[in-house]
């Protein structure tokens, strides 16, 4: 279990910049065996939270318990039951796969027969069995990620933290990685907290936490998050989105939200969408570039909660998603 209570982190300012609050009184509990995705725009505080959770930074205030151990008071005990997969590769490219795994085992006090046994277990799901003697820098990105995960599994962590682990992977490697992760998580009943910008990765999670400005905006199962938006929505692209939105509001009395040049009628209940769409098209044809009925996705939930446009999210993903 990961239990975060009233966590606040304020970065000390410098002479030129004032102190900046990265995490603002955040409380979050992730139950045993739960798979939780943490998402949020750049600067939302999720990277800071991740650093604190893996014990690399000390927060300004608040409490964190990892599997029953106070992370801030007994970092070593809490660390012993944690596995961490970082965004940047934490394996040595100049060493072979086997050498990397062995070194990691020593760091966690594994040796002898126990190590051999764990190694077989940790490699069972991977495609690495024939590549153990190869240097890591000869592996593909997908295989290198498998080494990272296998390395963490060696120590049989009860808690696994992953920071955007699929960054830089092609879509099929990404899918394989996430599928393997889910399978292992279920088999071993690990508690998983993974930060991600990729909403397709969040669909299978037990819960999704969405952060912005250091606070938790939403925390629920993907289904429930979606249900919080209307069941359907009408999405209009327009070059004159601002004036169009004002007219829809005043002339039709409909509730709208605007994200850049996109006007959304997010709270359209089932079955109402088509008549609304027809009405809009009849009245404002000249101003509408495109109009569609959409089932909300997690991305829509994210956009709704954080007020970010799809383009902003895409740009952040392109930039490698680091604040």
């Amino acid at each position: 279990m990961i239990d975060i209570a009233h966590l606040t982190h304020v970065y000390p300012g410098t002479r030129k910049t004032p102190p900046r609050t990265a995490i603002d009184d955040l409380s979050l509990t992730i139950g045993d065996g739960e798979f939780c995705i943490l998402s949020g725009p750049n600067g939302s505080g999720k990277s800071t939270l991740f650093r604190i959770l893996c014990g690399m930074s000390l927060p300004s205030s608040g409490r964190i318990s990892m599997g029953g151990f106070d992370l801030l008071k007994y970092p070593s005990k809490a660390r012993a039951q944690m596995g961490v997969v970082f965004q940047s590769p934490a394996i040595d490219k100049h060493l072979s796969v086997a050498e990397n795994l062995r070194l990691h085992a020593v760091l966690y006090g594994l040796r002898g027969g126990e190590y051999d046994h764990r190694l077989t277990e940790a490699l069972a799901w991977t495609d690495l069995k024939d590549r153990l003697a190869d240097k890591v820098d000869t592996l593909s990105g997908g295989l290198a990620r498998q080494v990272e995960l296998a390395k963490c599994l060696l120590t049989r962590p009860s808690i696994l933290l992953l920071d955007e682990p699929t960054t830089g992977l092609d879509p099929s490697s990404r899918r394989n990685f996430i599928m393997a992760l889910h399978k292992i998580q279920r088999e071993r009943r690990m508690t998983v907290l993974m930060t991600s910008h990729i909403f397709s990765e969040a669909e299978d999670a037990d819960r999704v936490a969405i952060m912005k400005g250091g606070r938790l905006l939403g925390l629920d199962s993907p289904q429930d998050l979606r249900a919080k938006l209307g069941r359907e929505m009408v999405v209009i692209q327009s070059r004159h989105a601002e004036s169009l939105e004002a007219r829809i509001r005043s002339e039709l009395g409909l509730k709208t939200r605007r994200y850049g040049d996109e006007v959304r009628l997010e709270e359209t209940s089932n079955g109402d969408s088509l008549p609304v769409l027809e009405k809009l098209l009849a009245r404002y044809r000249a101003d509408i570039d495109s109009i569609a009925i959409k089932q909300p996705t997690l991305e829509d939930v994210f956009i709704h909660l954080t007020g970010q446009t799809a383009e902003q999210i895409e740009r952040e993903q392109m930039e490698g998603a680091h604040p």
């Binding site: 893996c54 014990g55 690399m56 070593s76 005990k77 660390r79 012993a80 944690m82 961490v84 970082f86 940047s88 590769p89 934490a90 394996i91 040595d92 990691h104 760091l107 966690y108 390395k151």
Partner: peptide, 9 residues
Amino acid sequence: FLQSVLVAP
């Protein structure tokens, strides 16, 4: 590489 050593117990 260093970060994985730092988070080890």
